[in-house]
Amino acid sequence: MSAHSTAIGVSSKRGVWGGGNEPLKASYGKLMMWFFLLSDIFTFAAFLISYLAIRVSYPAYAGPADTFVGSNEYWPVPELVFEAVPFLHGIHAPLVFVGIMTFILISSSVTMVLAVEAGHRNDRNDVVKWMLWTMLGGITFLACQAWEWSHFIHGTDAGSVLTYINSLNREVTETVFGANLVVNEYGPAAFAQLFFFITGFHGFHVTIGVVLLFLAFYQAAVGVYDRRGHYEMIEKIGLYWHFVDLVWVFVFTLFYLI
């Protein structure tokens, strides 16, 4: 542990409490990334567990799937809400699009781990190649999410007839299309609020991730890490990117499956 201590004039025999030890055997940057991710795990966990609590406080839709109509009286079934795919208007394809999004994000996590592996070998060409693929995966995922949001906001052709209290504090009954923070055609207002808040916060993380990926990609390509002598930055950004994937795995289960 302290055998390779770099402090000048310090005996290697000073023991555990003498300072200069590295009990966690990781660099400062990597440790701080892990502790940041731990705090972010708590943030996302708080969101997702609150989602679960609000969800169980509403009755679930229990009727048959083909007669489903959106109502703010009960929580909708996700596979009846998220059933649209770009370019296939009017075709009922439950969870297909979100399945594609999940696949894209998991794939970009795989290319990221390949970039980290190439970084361990100081192989600049491989790092650059895999970082580029990871970045493309991230951008594609964001584009998919933009479509998903825009479809969610604009809604279906038919909409749903709802009675609700509008922003002028009046009770109205009308056909509602799509979703906003006051009312949505799918379920209780909290359904769309939580959808926007949680997938939005996750999408924000992905956006930051893509920026970081680009910086690391650029620095690797111009040889900054070669001159620095190690590719640890790729590892740290990799940790963040895998975390984004990890959160999506939970968002996917809680929002789209349960």
């Binding site: 592996e117 070998r121 100081n122 491989d126 070669d226």
Partner: peptide
Amino acid sequence: TKSTLEVTPRNNDKI
């Protein structure tokens, strides 16, 4: 920009 680091070959088991 030429690398001064030694590049180790791919470890296929890891990949």
